[in-house]
Amino acid sequence: MTNIYRMPEFSLRWTPVWRRNLLVWRKLAIASVLGNIADPLLYMLAIGYGIGSFIPEMNGMKYIAFIGTGMVCQSAMFTASFEGMYSAFSRMFMQRTWDAIINTPISLDDVLFAEWIWTATKSVISVTAILLVILALGYGHSGLAIWILPLGFLVGLCFGAFALIMNALAPGYDFFTYFFTLMLTPMLLLSGVFFPVEQMPAALQAVASALPLKHAIDIARPLLMGRIPDALFLHIAVLAAYAVVAYYVALVLTRRRLLK
């Protein structure tokens, strides 16, 4: 019996798979970036300026900057989720690209690792685009904001891994709707993207403190304001723990699906 629970096998052979995805992305780069950032930008500008005219400041930040940092994290979350579900599913199931790859010296473990890194890469791309808009609008206060890029990568690893779990279980594209309605939408509303978590009742605050997106936002907001975040390592540890555990689960489920 193939042991699907064995530890991940690491080799550098994953890089050509990541490069393959990059090449496809390059063919449609502009459309792809616009697709990834259109939503968050619209939210940021519409709500930021609209509601921002009633609430000039939120926790010592311009409201548009407040929501902007929320949108940076949100876009990292959504971009990696889309990539790990719809796009990965197309490659795995519809096009059988993974089947072709595992007939070469590249193993399924390498393929999944490459896809995981790729989901996070896509997150960094959209985070970069949104951050540039925030800076262009004049809301960046220090060079510390550059650290939001590696944060975007970590958020991408976290949600990319969740998405790859869904991918391994999905009978078809419709299945991914569950992830949006049961995971991402509550995450978006409870993690302090639009208003501070402290405004919510204690019970909801307790829920929020377990959500990875909340920890991402707790890092991003101070960075944009030019401050080192409080409890930085705790937030990083929570995000990293979610990412690593979810990736292992995704790997086991993917092996179960394809290596039989």
Partner: peptide, 30 residues
């Protein structure tokens, strides 16, 4: 597998690439 070639039952060429690109990308896997 480095020294073996496989033609699978179902076509799984990469639809996002040209014929030449398919060969290049596959060569890189090796």
């Amino acid at each position: 597998r480095i020294r073996v070639g496989v033609v699978p039952q179902m076509d799984n060429l990469d639809p996002d690439f040209t014929a030449r690109e398919n060969l290049i990308i596959y060569g890189r896997y090796f």
